[in-house]
Simulated scan of single mutants.
Amino acid sequence: MIRLTLLALLGALAGCGSDGDYPALVPVGTLLSDAPDAPAPTDELRARGDALEARAEALRRAQP
């Protein structure tokens, strides 16, 4: 009896909002096409990245 009641309730709720006025979905490709390209890393950023990689490697070697 409980299953029948739950099934009827779910069926009634499934019909709710089916006639709503929802906006049309926008394809993701059109949203991402206007995104600017990431700038190339500068020499300063590359130097910082190299220093971080060297520090990480030193920490890995120090651990047993």
Rank of each mutant, 00 (worst) to 15 (best):
M1C: 08
I2T: 09
I2L: 12
I2C: 06
R3C: 10
R3Y: 09
R3M: 08
R3W: 10
L4K: 13
L4I: 13
T5F: 15
T5A: 15
T5H: 11
T5V: 15
T5D: 10
L6P: 07
L6T: 12
L6Y: 09
L6M: 13
L7S: 15
L7F: 14
A8I: 14
L9R: 15
L10P: 10
G11H: 11
G11P: 07
L13I: 12
L13N: 13
A14R: 12
A14Y: 14
A14D: 09
A14C: 13
A14N: 12
G15W: 15
G15R: 13
G15F: 14
G15I: 14
C16K: 12
C16V: 15
S18T: 13
D19P: 03
D19M: 14
G20I: 06
G20Q: 08
G20V: 05
G20P: 04
D21T: 08
D21E: 15
D21R: 11
Y22E: 08
Y22R: 12
Y22Q: 06
P23M: 06
P23V: 01
P23C: 03
P23L: 04
A24L: 14
L25V: 12
L25C: 05
P27Q: 09
P27G: 02
P27W: 09
P27K: 05
V28C: 03
V28E: 13
G29I: 00
G29F: 00
G29D: 13
G29E: 14
G29N: 12
L31G: 00
L31W: 05
L31E: 03
L32W: 09
S33N: 04
S33E: 06
S33K: 08
S33A: 13
D34I: 07
D34H: 11
D34M: 06
A35K: 08
P36W: 11
P36K: 08
P36Q: 09
D37K: 13
D37L: 10
D37W: 07
A38W: 06
A38M: 06
A38I: 03
P39K: 09
P39I: 07
P39T: 10
P41H: 08
T42A: 02
T42D: 07
T42S: 10
D43C: 03
E44Q: 10
E44H: 06
E44L: 10
E44N: 03
E44P: 03
E44A: 15
L45E: 06
L45K: 00
R46S: 02
R46V: 12
A47V: 02
G49C: 02
D50P: 00
D50L: 00
A51P: 01
A51I: 01
A51D: 04
A51C: 03
L52M: 05
L52G: 01
L52T: 00
L52P: 00
L52E: 01
E53I: 01
A54I: 00
A54W: 03
A56D: 05
A56K: 06
E57G: 03
A58M: 02
A58R: 05
A58K: 05
A58P: 01
A58N: 01
L59K: 01
L59C: 01
R60G: 07
R60A: 10
R60V: 07
R60W: 11
R61S: 06
R61T: 04
R61V: 02
A62D: 00
A62L: 03
Q63C: 01
P64M: 03
